[in-house]
Simulated scan of single mutants.
Amino acid sequence: MSNPTRAPSAMQARLSTVPTSASKSRQLSHLHAQLAQLTANMSDLENLLRMTAVQAEGIRGLGGYAGAMFMAASKVLGEETVNGTSAESSNQTSTKTVDR
């Protein structure tokens, strides 16, 4: 007991999902536009990566300068601390001997 009116509508539904040449053309045009956009984005990415590599070299150089300055400051401040401590010790020793 099947309904004979359903068969044509099911057939029409199946036929409507089959792509026509116009829809294929539209889909291909859309894919072409997406590919063009992807190509442009990849070109931009390549340029950005190239600039990032150049900047990374510059940052590496700055890191070297900063490290050198920290080492120099550590040496200078370390010498002042050692000289200041030894000078204070000798002053305290000399004042103690004078007081006696």
Rank of each mutant, 00 (worst) to 15 (best):
S16H: 07
S16E: 14
S16Q: 09
T17I: 09
T17F: 08
V18W: 07
V18Q: 11
V18R: 10
P19Y: 00
P19G: 03
T20F: 05
T20Y: 07
T20H: 05
S21E: 10
S21W: 04
S21F: 13
A22S: 12
S23T: 15
S23C: 03
S23V: 13
K24I: 04
S25C: 07
S25A: 15
R26L: 13
R26T: 14
R26Q: 14
Q27F: 14
Q27L: 15
Q27G: 07
L28D: 12
S29A: 08
H30C: 00
H30E: 05
H30T: 05
H30N: 04
L31D: 03
L31T: 10
L31R: 10
L31M: 06
H32C: 06
H32A: 14
H32T: 15
A33G: 01
Q34A: 14
L35I: 08
L35N: 15
L35V: 13
L35P: 00
A36R: 01
A36G: 00
A36F: 04
A36V: 06
Q37N: 07
L38T: 14
L38Q: 08
T39R: 14
T39C: 01
T39E: 11
A40P: 06
A40T: 15
A40G: 03
A40K: 14
A40E: 11
N41I: 05
N41Y: 02
N41E: 05
M42I: 07
M42G: 02
M42W: 06
S43A: 14
S43G: 14
S43L: 11
D44E: 06
L45G: 04
L45S: 04
L45Y: 11
E46D: 03
E46T: 12
N47G: 08
N47M: 07
N47R: 13
L48F: 00
L48D: 01
L49S: 08
L49H: 09
R50Y: 02
R50D: 02
M51G: 08
M51Q: 15
M51A: 13
T52P: 00
V54W: 00
V54L: 12
Q55T: 06
Q55S: 02
A56Y: 13
A56I: 03
